[in-house]
């Protein structure tokens, strides 16, 4: 049994992030909101975001921060989707060999006790 760490952010099967597209300023956003975070209008349509992108930033969290009970170290960074949206995300650890612009793919990761969230992992690790 998988329990999402928070409702309404992503689907588990298939792994996908749930975003929105603004009908006025045409920006994508994540998470889904009632108002576009860029222009404030209500003309936002729910969309499923791309499940792949390129690595834009990465680091590794080496000690457990307050309120976090999962494994350390873990990867943390930003992946840029083809929609032009930069997503804050966990990354598969270790990140030592990561490079700017490398191809990344979305997957679901277990934080413990069946609670799951999203993360991005290098395409090559999956042999894609």
């Amino acid at each position: 049994m998988h329990t999402p760490v928070h409702e309404g952010l992503f689907t588990v099967d298939p792994p996908a992030l749930l975003g929105a597209l603004c009908g006025e300023c045409e920006h994508h956003c994540f998470p889904r909101l009632a108002h576009c975070p860029y222009c404030g209008c209500e003309n936002v349509d729910p969309v499923t975001l791309s499940d792949h992108g390129t690595l834009w930033g990465w680091t590794e969290v080496t000690t457990a921060p307050p309120g976090y009970e999962g494994v350390v170290p873990f990867g943390f960074g930003i992946v840029e989707l083809p929609e032009g949206l930069r997503i804050v995300t966990r990354l598969t650890s270790p990140t030592a060999t990561y490079e700017y612009g490398m191809a990344m793919r979305l997957q679901i990761v277990d934080l413990g006790d069946g609670v799951v969230t999203w993360e991005f992992t290098p395409e090559t690790e999956r042999g894609v």
Partner: peptide, 27 residues
Amino acid sequence: KGIIRSTFFEPWREQAGLAVTPAYFAL
């Protein structure tokens, strides 16, 4: 002491490891 904990972040963000201030600084 240590990493600043902030009510700014909803609890799920801490739980998911997406509320780590020095990690944002690092990026």
